[in-house]
Design a protein around this nucleic acid. Structure first.
Lengths: 342, 342
DNA sequence: TCACGCTACTCAAACGTTTGGGAAAATCGT
DNA sequence: ACGATTTTCCCAAACGTTTGAGTAGCGTGA
């Protein structure tokens, strides 16, 4: 096993290798960490392999702090999310992390709890850690914190939510909302309601807009209620919508957790979810398929969104200005809308 | 708004402050980043305030790379978890992050997917980033990867799972298992089964042991089946347990997601969960209370575990050797076990 | 033979901090 | 008034890298 490496001693440095190989540290640097053309001009094939041998034997790992200090590039990126214990954001972050790792970046994640003061404070913290850029999953549609960050010239991309013209990778939420509307219309639902999520999140806004636009096109108005993105929020909103007259026969929650809460509210109202009232959610989290009453949901490519966002940021850091992306959603129909409404 | 700071220009350095204040950079360093006694010996009250004024005006932030290079301390810690999109681990990580931030540490999180090769690779990555220490949430009970890490002299603490004598912060899982057994016994369940989780995780092992020990004390044997920690795993294991003769009237899943899967399996078997078969889980994730059939579960202090783990690591890095901690679990009874079994 | 251009290197400075060791100036004790 | 002490500060080296600029030695063509 190649475990022991350098047990008690300090980590190997370029200088140690240089001395051991009888060359200058600059030569070692170019051979070990330089571009192929650099290494060609820096040393003969023989010295290069000799250097590499010593490096391997000493277990050399470049010191990232020294490198960052010299190059003023940290290969660090900061990631801000509303809340990591929300599985949607956690999954997006997994995508970000995977892509970042593949590109040699390391990431810091932090929760902003969707609070502007925390957003500012956490951004500040990331910046003080000298990140090269940021991936923001907690953009608010008013965009004020974002504009502040942009004004400071910090490269960043948005993920999941979008705002203004800032580069972003999102799901085509509007399209997703329409998909649900189509589905409900096909099932014959004419009295429906939307649990619209937080008013500052483009996800909820767009999903709601897609849905209501489609209904408006058929001449039907749709009541929509804002709510927290969690079960409690969904429950409360559904409760109120179910008191409407006429009572909706189908509910669209812009988020799976809210949809789960809605299922509970339907049951609490003495109705049978899926039969009396159809319920659809959004994101298609793993749990949706496993619920006692499997939940119809719009699958959003969360992991891919994360990857793409990191790709975009890498592009940005490389001096390009890659275009925003909107990824296609997909409706997954399950029992919670399969039985005929009414 | 104090936004503009230093728009286009490079970040402020000690030298810039020193020149602007007419003192040496070492003086500035001591005043700005030194211990109170240091600053006292470094400059008069007046110069100190003058220096601080300039620093503030220039928006000075110490360069962490330069500092780390000089001190060979990074104030970085690496965190390894099986999977961040598991809400249990995400919540623990939130605790870690909160405590780390409060102590001026930044954290890298990475998924190991409970695979030893990934554990090694990710550890290597963290180490190459020069973390001061690690928090490991993915310890396997065989402990081989851990021993390798320990042999390299890297400070680390375990969280959620424990192994050997490595410092750890865990829930008292054994106790938690016993609590569920007590509860089941009080309800009169004599034929029960355990969905035991992965065989390499101390969480599953201890929870199962606590439960079966309690039953053994009353002279009853308990069938236990290993499973993945997710709904699918719980579903499959429950299915098999329900085929037992006599058929169990209560199931204990060592994890809430597995419990949710078990609920589905009970229903699929034509039985009524909560009435025909009681089901209890572990962790008491937020969802447990919100399910159509609210789930009885053992609450484990996930966030606190994270915080404490980071505290422990900080202690370790400070040269102490703080003792491992086992935090108390708490049984939360809900409808999934409230109706009489049988 | 000499100017020339390679090849294979070396030199030295710089990135922004921290920190041990002074040292000049001010203050104090007697 | 003079040595001792304290206050207030400066000097310089070091952490490990990268990178622009140079150079010794060698082969080549005329």
């Amino acid at each position: 096993m190649r475990v022991a490496r350098q047990d008690g001693r300090r980590p190997a440095t370029l200088r140690m290798i240089a001395e051991s190989a009888g060359v200058d540290v600059s030569t070692v640097s170019r051979v070990l960490n330089g571009a192929p053309e650099d290494v060609a001009r820096a040393a003969s094939k023989d010295t290069a392999t000799a250097i590499r041998a010593v490096a391997e034997q000493l277990g050399y790992r470049p010191n990232p702090h020294a490198r960052s200090l010299r190059t003023s590039r940290s290969n660090l990126v900061g990631v801000l999310v509303p809340r990591l214990s929300d599985v949607v954001l956690a999954t997006i972050y997994e995508g970000i992390e995977d892509e970042a790792a593949a590109r040699g970046f390391a990431t810091f994640v932090m929760n902003s709890y969707d609070r502007p003061d925390k957003q500012r404070a956490r951004t500040e913290l990331a910046l003080s850690r000298r990140v090269d850029g940021l991936v923001l999953g907690d953009a608010h549609s008013d965009g004020v914190v974002l504009d502040e960050i942009a004004a400071r010239g910090v490269p960043f991309v948005l993920v999941s939510r979008h705002t203004g013209t800032h580069p972003s990778v999102t799901c085509d939420d509007y399209r997703g909302g329409r998909l649900v509307a189509e589905h409900f219309l096909e099932l014959g639902h004419r009295d429906v309601g939307v649990i619209a999520g937080e008013p500052f999140a483009s996800t909820g806004i767009d999903r709601t807009a897609g849905f209501t636009d489609r209904y408006r096109e058929t001449g039907l108005a749709v009541p929509a209620l804002h709510s927290a993105f969690d079960t409690a929020g969904g429950h409360a909103a559904a409760e109120r919508l179910l008191r409407g007259d006429p009572r909706p026969t189908a509910l669209f929650a812009v988020n799976d957790f809210a949809a789960i809460g809605a299922l509970g509210a339907v049951r609490d109202a003495g109705l049978v979810p899926g039969a009396d009232v159809a319920v659809a959610g959004f994101n298609d989290i793993a749990l949706a398929a496993e619920l006692p009453l499997p939940l119809t949901s719009v699958r959003s490519p969360m992991h891919t969104m994360g990857r793409r966002a990191m790709e975009l940021l890498a592009g940005l850091l490389g001096g390009e200005s890659p275009p925003s992306q909107r990824l296609a959603p997909e409706l997954v129909v399950r029992a919670s809308t399969r039985a005929e409404g009414r």
